[in-house]
């Protein structure tokens, strides 16, 4: 489903190379994790894949079902089935959560040539999806992420994922700032979305999220590259010995 090949990227404004040849492949139905120390390029990978400004791809490719992601605008990537759950979901005062999500869903559907949902159909959908994530009508009515706690913001990200039904979900440090209960709720939400035609790329520092969202494959990233790939046991190794050991071993 997602194929990243030899991806090189630098900051647009500075001569600083961040990704130095990332290659990985996530097949449909699988959950892959990317772990790595601070500054290794994990979040940059997610931004480059989703099309955030400020990065310049200098080499390599990234495709989703064979479509060149890097040629698309961020909204086109979303319509193609890519979703990035933000590490820091953005507050947008004055835009209702529900209005935002309906605008997003219908824009995606329109771009794909699908029928747009009516207000009533959308309301039914979002109520149903919200219930599972413990998101009540009040949260839905409030402006996007404004006044939400850390846990509520992350749950809201998962709600968006549930409503938009993307094919490829990237979770950028979704566990940061969450207590154990909130993390479990988020993980349950993600697990409920696991499907044969959907894949996940879970970016995290710590193994603990992976206790709840069990990965099929774990990649270790360092200095802009994937340096090691293995099974879930790789995450445990990181937890026990830290990155330094693992990286020295690779070097």
């Amino acid at each position: 489903m997602l194929k990243i090949n030899n991806l090189h990227a630098k900051l647009e404004d500075e001569d600083k190379q961040i990704l130095k040849g990332v290659s990985l492949e996530v097949p449909a139905g699988e959950v892959h994790a990317i772990m790595g120390p601070n500054g290794s390029g994990k979040s940059t990978t997610s931004y480059v894949l989703s099309g955030r400004d400020g990065y310049e791809v200098t080499d390599g490719s990234a495709t989703l079902y064979g479509e060149d992601l890097l040629e698309m605008e961020p909204e086109e990537r979303a319509a193609a089935g890519l979703f990035l759950a933000f590490q820091y979901p953005v507050e947008i005062p004055g835009v209702g959560n529900m209005t935002f999500l309906r605008t997003a869903l219908n824009a995606q559907r329109k771009r794909r040539g699908e029928e747009e949902l009516s207000a009533a159909e959308f309301l039914k959908l979002i109520r149903e999806k919200g219930k599972a994530l413990n998101i009540d009508a009040d949260m839905l009515k409030r402006p996007v992420n404004v006044g939400f706690s850390g846990g509520e913001k992350k749950r809201n990200e998962i709600l968006q994922m549930a409503v938009l039904e993307p094919k490829m979900c990237i979770l950028d440090e979704t566990d940061s700032g969450l207590d154990v209960d909130a993390m479990r709720l988020v993980a349950d939400g993600v697990n409920a979305l696991r499907a044969p035609d959907r894949a996940f790329l879970v970016i995290t520092h710590y193994q603990r999220l992976l206790d709840h969202i069990r990965p099929d494959v774990v990649h270790i990233m360092s200095d802009g590259k994937i340096v090691k790939t293995g099974g879930p046991e790789l995450a445990l190794e990181v937890e026990q010995n830290g990155y330094a050991d693992l990286l020295s071993e690779v070097a």
Partner: peptide, 28 residues
């Protein structure tokens, strides 16, 4: 730009995202 990217990453086209953000700015 971060908020703009957030909206676009959810599939909202750029022009529409800017309109939403301007309305958000005027909300108070």
């Amino acid at each position: 730009e971060t908020a703009l990217f957030y909206l676009r990453s959810r599939g909202v086209p750029r022009d529409r995202a800017i309109v939403l953000m301007v309305l958000s700015f005027l909300a108070d």
